Amino acid sequence: MELLLEYGWVLLVLVALEGLLAADNALVLAIMVKHLPEAQRKKALFYGLLGAFVFRLGSLFVISFLVDVWQVQAIGALYLLYISINHTLKHFIKGKKPTEDAEPKPEKPKKQSGFWMTVFKVEVADIAFAVDSILAAVALAVALPPSGIPDIGGLDGGQFIVIFLGGFIGLIIMRFAASYFVKLLQQRPGLEVAAFIIVGWVGVKLAVITLAHPDVAIINHHFPENPIWKAIFYVVLVLIALVGWFTSTKQEVSSDQNAVKEVEEQQPGNSF
């Protein structure tokens, strides 16, 4: 029962994190294809959603065979910390830029990409989001106790199933519930910052796992499974989410800034 609860809790955290990342993914895709004619726009988004599934699944199987290599763990930890710090700094720097007092400068119209170049850019974005998603999921699940299910690649079978379910549910969210999460992120922008801080905290966890690897042995090999460390990790994770929620002032979104409408209108199911 205790094992089931621990796996269930990690899956719940994964679903919440995947939901926010999937909303970000869906919003980015909607913005990237916005300049295309309606028919091409919906096709490009369809390819984007298909690519998101393929790349997430591919990343999962690749990482399952490399997850026990400490160099891969180290690169993954550094990458998660990088995107967390980079995204957070960009948010605060953007927030400090003068907007009201500064005189608007005339912008030159940008040359927009054609259909296939847009699809290519969408797929590159999918790869980046897939790597973010799977690395975060692996860092959360890899410290779970053995489930007794046969290994898949270098992962315990139970850990693999949790990561797969988290990623799969994230795709479902991106396809059917993205508009709700996008609306939530627009109304409470602090949640997006909190989500990427959580990604950074997950990177810290992956760094701890790397340092505890037998070939590195800087800290005790059993430390990542230590109940005190696990409790500290999840308490901090929940606190980050709560601070993000309560410090993010709810904002009204005007119709011309309604990204929810963009995401809903560009769902492939509306045209196929």
Rank of each mutant, 00 (worst) to 15 (best):
K230M: 12
E103L: 15
E38R: 10
A177T: 06
F92S: 02
V124P: 11
F92A: 02
F223P: 01
L57P: 01
V235A: 15
L144H: 03
L49R: 08
Y79V: 07
I197W: 14
L185R: 12
P227W: 06
F164Y: 12
A207T: 10
G95D: 01
W201E: 15
L49Y: 14
A178F: 13
A130W: 13
G148S: 06
W245Y: 06
Y82I: 01
H35K: 04
A74T: 08
A77Q: 11
S271N: 07
A178Q: 05
Y7K: 03
L184G: 00
S254R: 08
A30P: 08
A231V: 06
H91I: 00
K34G: 04
L165I: 13
E2V: 15
V138P: 02
L57Y: 05
L29C: 01
E264C: 06
A143N: 08
L80A: 01
M32R: 11
I85Y: 13
A77I: 08
K121M: 13
S64K: 06
A22M: 12
A128S: 03
A44F: 07
G114A: 08
L89Q: 04
I149G: 03
Q267C: 13
I198T: 02
I149C: 00
V235G: 11
G167W: 04
T88A: 15
I218A: 15
L36C: 10
F129E: 01
A194F: 11
I163N: 00
K90L: 07
D101P: 01
V54C: 07
L80Y: 09
L60N: 05
A26V: 10
H213F: 15
I219P: 11
M32T: 07
V162E: 00
G158C: 09
V238Q: 06
G148R: 05
I209K: 04
L45M: 12
S147M: 03
P104Y: 13
Y180E: 09
A125R: 04
A39F: 15
P104L: 10
Y79R: 09
Q112Y: 14
I152A: 02
D151R: 05
A137C: 11
E123N: 10
K42S: 12
R188A: 03
V124K: 12
L36Q: 11
G148P: 07
G158D: 11
P150Q: 02
V204G: 06
L211G: 03
G244Q: 13
